[in-house]
């Protein structure tokens, strides 16, 4: 049983790794680099956290 489990583990790892690679490729080709890297530090604070002393 444990040996089967170990093969299953390899299987899961490979499937999930391939899925992530596929998704990565898909996203990187669908969206432009400007959109993907548009996150800026502190930008959310300006909206969500009113800064008062």
């Amino acid at each position: 049983m444990w040996t089967v489990l170990s093969y299953a583990s390899w299987g899961i790892s490979i499937v999930l790794a391939l899925w992530m690679l596929y998704d990565w490729f898909k996203i990187d080709t669908t969206f432009s680099e400007e959109v993907l890297t548009s996150s800026r530090e502190g930008e959310l604070e300006a909206v969500s956290e009113k800064h008062r002393i």
Binding site: Y7, S9, S13, M20
Partner: peptide, 13 residues
């Protein structure tokens, strides 16, 4: 190794 790989990859996923 199989269990290590499954752990790291699944959690990364």
């Amino acid at each position: 190794n199989a269990f290590i790989a499954a752990t790291i990859v699944t959690l990364a996923w």
